[in-house]
Amino acid sequence: MKFGILVNEGPFTHQASDSAYRFVLAALEKGHEIYRVFFYHDGVNNANKLSEPQSDDRDLVKLWSALGTEREIDLVVCVAAALRRGVKDDILAEGFRISGLGQLIEAGVESDRLVVFGD
């Protein structure tokens, strides 16, 4: 089955990004396809490669980035939400790309299920 995932919160204040990441891993494990992960609202902060969590903490930016590069999952950051928050191409972690909200709607159209994680 094809999944679209929407992540509405950043990597630190809320559990949303963790839950979404665990869900994606479990879905891949079961042989499902992740059509796209779309990051909106403060979720765009998941793509900020300048973030430096403490060494004993999980690093969601790196974890997502690895999924994007190693498993070729399409990680899309909403351009309007990103610009507001200063997330631009030069601080974008590898594996993410910045694009429009249309990519979220497209994920809704093309996926069998769209699962939303947020606050």
Partner: peptide, 19 residues
Amino acid sequence: TVYALECLETILIAAAFEQ
């Protein structure tokens, strides 16, 4: 919170997709 405003932005974009 920003959610109402950003949700409205999504709806305006979604309208163009003829769903």
